[in-house]
């Protein structure tokens, strides 16, 4: 992601400081670009839903981009992730392509799952994505098993299990964490605490201290501002490195917020959260704005950088949507294919 050979427009070689600054700029701008890609991807998904071009529903990741991007930036391509029903951000951050993502969402043949998985089941072996999962907490066992596989094979890979605060209500998560701790597996449980279990505030569903739960298993636990991609990335690097060194599982609690409702059709939300609350998060805690401001303050980037990125991302999204809309639907014979390997 970060180029090894950076030269300035001037003829003289860069000083060490300048080179390191250029690398820093390039790294954080690439994370900004990934977050913006997810943001604009999700806005387009909402559009496709509103204009009735997309079958079914989708659970948008907008607002939570810093978690997926910050964590996946700490991973190798061959590291594994498992994702959730709100998974578009994880898939993109781990390396999925926008066009095949859109194609899957529209149920088209060139989609990542040949149109058979849809929004909630995108899997991409090439980028280490073992699949989004529409059962809340459903991938805790799969992620932990993948980690046992990594350890058994001595592959040096690590696994990230993404889930939301709603999954804290599922017993499977605790069964899996218990075994990960017993067997010191290279798995990082990343909780995206967006405050709501679907339509219910987690204060009504989750007793005690959330962080005390992984700690009870002796799992190394950290809490981070999930809107600050720099903080998420720094924590993820720490946890991934210790997992790769064989120091066992970790739990990363990311405090975040979903800008849309539980899914695209969840428009009337006032019975569970206020408009003021939503506006506050969007105005004060938008991960794109936070990173953008920091880059400007540090003098690492200016308006022209952001304009250029936005132009590029919009072109990517537009091309992806066009690709998906024009792509063929699966052949009817596909219906009975791949039931068995």
């Amino acid at each position: 992601m970060v180029s090894e050979h950076i030269t300035s427009s001037e003829e003289r070689p860069l000083t060490r400081d300048e080179a390191s600054r250029a690398r820093e700029r390039q790294f954080w701008l690439s994370l900004y670009e990934q977050m913006l890609t997810i943001r604009l991807f999700e806005e387009q998904v909402n559009e496709l839903y509103m204009s009735a071009k997309m079958p079914g529903l989708a659970h948008l990741y907008s607002g939570e981009e810093a978690v997926a991007v910050g964590v996946c930036a700490a991973l190798r391509r061959d590291d594994y992730i498992t994702s959730t029903h709100r998974g578009h951000g994880h898939c993109l951050a781990k390396g999925a392509a926008v066009d095949r993502m859109f194609a899957e969402l529209l149920g088209k043949q060139p989609g990542y799952c040949r149109g058979k998985g849809g929004s909630m089941h995108i899997a991409d072996q090439e980028s280490g994505n073992l699949g989004a999962n529409a059962i809340v907490g459903g991938s805790a066992g799969i992620a932990t098993g993948a980690a046992l596989s990594c350890k058994r094979r001595g592959s040096g890979q690590v696994v990230v299990c993404f889930f939301g605060d709603g999954a804290l209500g599922q017993g499977l998560l605790y069964e899996a964490m218990n075994m990960a701790a017993l067997w010191q597996l290279p798995v990082i449980y990343v909780c995206e605490n967006n405050l709501y279990n679907e339509y219910t505030p987690n204060s009504e569903t989750t007793a005690g201290d959330m962080l005390a739960r992984p700690r009870a298993f002796g799992i190394h636990t950290e809490e981070v501002d999930g809107q600050d991609v720099r903080a998420v990335y720094a924590a993820a690097v720490r946890l991934v490195e210790r997992a790769r060194r064989g120091e066992g599982p970790a739990y990363l609690h990311c405090n975040t917020y979903r800008f849309y409702g539980h899914h695209v059709g969840d428009i009337q939300r006032s019975y569970y959260r206020s408009r003021e609350e939503e506006e506050w998060w969007k105005a004060q805690r938008d991960p794109l704005k936070l990173l953008g401001s920091w880059l400007r303050e540090q003098g690492l980037a200016e308006d022209s950088h952001f304009a250029e990125i936005e132009r590029r991302v919009r072109a990517l999204i537009e091309a992806g949507v066009r690709f998906a809309l024009e792509a063929p639907y699966p052949d009817p014979q596909e219906v009975a294919q791949h039931v068995y390997a």
Partner: peptide, 13 residues
């Protein structure tokens, strides 16, 4: 549930 899920993850990888 946990170790069956772990079995699924092992098998997938």
């Amino acid at each position: 549930a946990g170790f069956t899920g772990i079995g699924v993850g092992l098998a997938m990888t």
